[in-house]
Structures are given as C-alpha cells and as structure tokens.
Amino acid sequence: MTPVSDHPQRRQVRIAGGLFAGARAIVIAVITVDRLSAGAASVLLGPLDDQIILSASMLVASLALVAGLWNVSPPTWMLPFKILGLLGAVVTVLGAGVFTLFSIDVSRTTLVEGGCDTGYVVVERTLLLGSKGTVYQQEGLFIASPMGRTSADDAHEPFAEGDYTVTTTDGTLTIEYGVDRGGPTATLSLPAIVDRVPSCGYAPTGLDTRPGSTEPTTPTEVLTPTSVDAAIDQLLDDSLAAAAGTPVDASGTPIDASTAERSLVPCVDGSGVQHHVDLQFRTDDNATSVAQILGVWDDAGYEPDRAMQEDIRYSETGPVARLTMRDTTSIDGFVRMTITSACVPAQ
C-alpha cells in the first residue's frame, strides 16, 4: 500500500506534468504557425508576440520539469539520472528566465494616420540602450503578419511615445519615426491596406500608455449627428476663412466648406459612428494659412498636441474630437486637414 505521505508528491507531479504539457502545446502551436506560413505569419496576442510567448512557455515548461523531477522518487539506481535531469532543467530555467526578462518589456501601439487606424500595429521592446520594433498586419484574432522592422537608440520607443507620422500616397503608407528623442528620423514604407473601414477618433499618439494602444477620446455628454455636423460646418467655415487667400483643390477649384465630403467611420470605443472630413488644399501662402487656422482652433478651446510634422488639436468633451493639420508644401504643395467628430449614434 502506498504511504499517505506520497499522495501530495503525486499530486505535485501531476500538476507539473499538466503545466509542462500545456506549455509544450503552446510552443508547438507557435512554431507550427511559423512553419506552415514559411515565416509570413506569426502569433500575436495583444502586445505578446511569438518571441515572448515562446520564451515564457519555455520558462513554464522548464520550471514544471524541475518540480516534476524533484517530486519523483526513483529507485536508487536511477538517482544519478534524476540529478542530471534536475541540473539540465535548472540550466534551462536560467536560460529561459534571462531570455524572458529581455523579452517582457514590450508595448503595442495602433498605427494611426489622421486620427484613424491604418490596419497596422507596432510591437516594440527595449534592449539595453536600444529598442526594436516589428510592424504587424493583424490577419485574425491571434495571427498577424510581420511587415517591417524598426529600431531606435537610447531605449526610445517612437511609436509608444507618439514620435511618428504616417502619410498615404498612391497606395503606399510612408511611416516616419524618430530614431532618438529630438534626433534623426527614419522612414519605413508599407502597402496601404485596402477594402477595410478604418476606426477613427484616436487621441494624440503621444498619450499612448504601456502596454496597449492609443486610447480614443470619448465625450462626456450625449451628442447627436445634427450637433456634430453643425460643429464641423462651423469649424470648416472658420478654418477656410482664416486661410491666406482662397483655398483651392488639386484642380484649382475653390473649396466650398458646405460641400466638403464626409465619411462615416465606426467608433473605436463603443457603438455608433464618427463623422470624418479629410481635406487637401493649397493657398497663396500655405505656411501662413496653417498658422492662422491653428489659431482659430486654439481660440475655439481645443487642446494642442503635435506629432512629427503634424499639428493636432483635440477635445474630450466637445462635438469634434480631433483636428489635424499637416503642411506638405515641400512635398506636393498642399496642406492636409482632417476633422473627426465625437462618437454619435448611427442614423
């Protein structure tokens, strides 16, 4: 008859065996996704990419192995094998622990252009005095495709800190991000994701928290489609009236604020929609126009912020949640302005 004192040891061995089997299954699943896609896809769960999932699973598996071997009572002749197994498992624990320690400091940021998501996310991690990032296109609930790599100095995480801008031109997404705080920049180009409806209304990227993505602003009062449209109309009228000369489009036709095209985009947080206006125009003096329009927004009480080469104004309570202004005169001679309303019920 087995002594009663052996029962707790057997339970601990079974628990260790279950943990080992679970961690092993996760490792196999992550590796299988990578192999079946020939490296084109990987597992992404929130900010946890395949690197941290693998290292954490290996740590759990090796700890479970140590616990299991420790609680096993082998025959005397097998004791040397138990000792060797424990030593190997302890070495594995130390290696997996160090690797996990260098992998766990991660952040995930939704890549945003003009207050709307682009379909890409960036996972960044710091390592000693540098940082590395991977740009992913989310393909499913847990599957994503790595599309590009980024790097920065002095533990600077440009995307988590909002030190980046995104511009879409002719189906190409151009991402400019800071390599160092206040220092040089680098550029990454990706294909724009088509056939998708973006989510808009994101707060300034500089307000991003770790871990997680940029959080959208939410108004504290109930607004209606009519009230947000009226607020957008007023801002458009005041902004274009403040420009230096008459704002015109690419064909040279004067822009009429009353006919500016609007799109309805899903709210980032909760149900409903947001009214979004995206204008591209030029004036007699773009630099003066930008300064004067920003003055109008400041006078209207919007809070200021700035990403690289993009001026931002936002409100957490007003009918308009976010306004952006980007002067690309040196590139194509235009100014780009977006106005995004707060979330309202869909009609």
Rank of each mutant, 00 (worst) to 15 (best):
T259I: 05
D233M: 01
L190K: 06
A203N: 10
T165V: 11
T209H: 13
P191E: 01
A257H: 10
T172C: 06
V228W: 10
Y164L: 03
S258G: 11
V197A: 00
S227D: 15
E261S: 15
A244Y: 14
D195V: 07
D229M: 06
L235N: 01
F159K: 03
R181T: 11
A152N: 03
D170R: 13
S239R: 02
A243W: 07
D170C: 03
G212T: 01
A243M: 14
R262G: 02
A244C: 07
D195K: 13
D256E: 13
P247A: 02
P158D: 05
S227K: 08
S239C: 08
G252F: 05
G252L: 14
T167Q: 09
E161T: 09
P216K: 10
R196P: 11
A203C: 01
T226H: 09
T217Q: 04
S251T: 15
L190F: 06
T214F: 09
D256M: 04
D233A: 07
A257T: 09
D249T: 04
V248Y: 09
D237L: 12
I175A: 08
V194G: 12
T185R: 13
S263V: 07
S227N: 11
G201F: 12
A186H: 11
P191L: 01
D180W: 13
V265I: 00
P266S: 05
G162Y: 12
A231V: 02
G171N: 05
L188H: 06
D154E: 14
A160T: 13
I255T: 14
A155R: 15
P211T: 13
T174E: 14
G178Y: 09
R262H: 01
A186L: 04
A257Y: 11
C200R: 08
D229C: 01
D208L: 05
T259N: 03
T220G: 04
T209A: 14
A230K: 07
L207V: 12
T209R: 15
T253V: 15
V265C: 00
T246A: 08
S213C: 02
V222D: 06
D238C: 07
P225W: 02
R262Q: 06
A186Q: 14
G245L: 08
A160D: 14
T209L: 15
L223A: 04
T167M: 04
D229N: 15
T218M: 03
A260I: 01
A244D: 15
P266W: 00
V179D: 01
Y177W: 07
I193A: 11
Q234V: 14
D180Y: 12
D237M: 08
P254S: 09
E176C: 00
T172R: 10
P184L: 09
G245R: 11
G183C: 07
A231P: 10
V228P: 04
D249K: 05
E157H: 02
T174H: 12
T246Q: 15
P198L: 04
D238T: 12
I255S: 09
T187Q: 10
D163I: 08
G212I: 01
G212E: 11
V265K: 01
A192F: 06
Y164W: 10
I255W: 13
Q234W: 04
F159E: 06
T259L: 07
I232H: 02
G212N: 13
D249I: 02
V197Q: 02
Y202E: 00
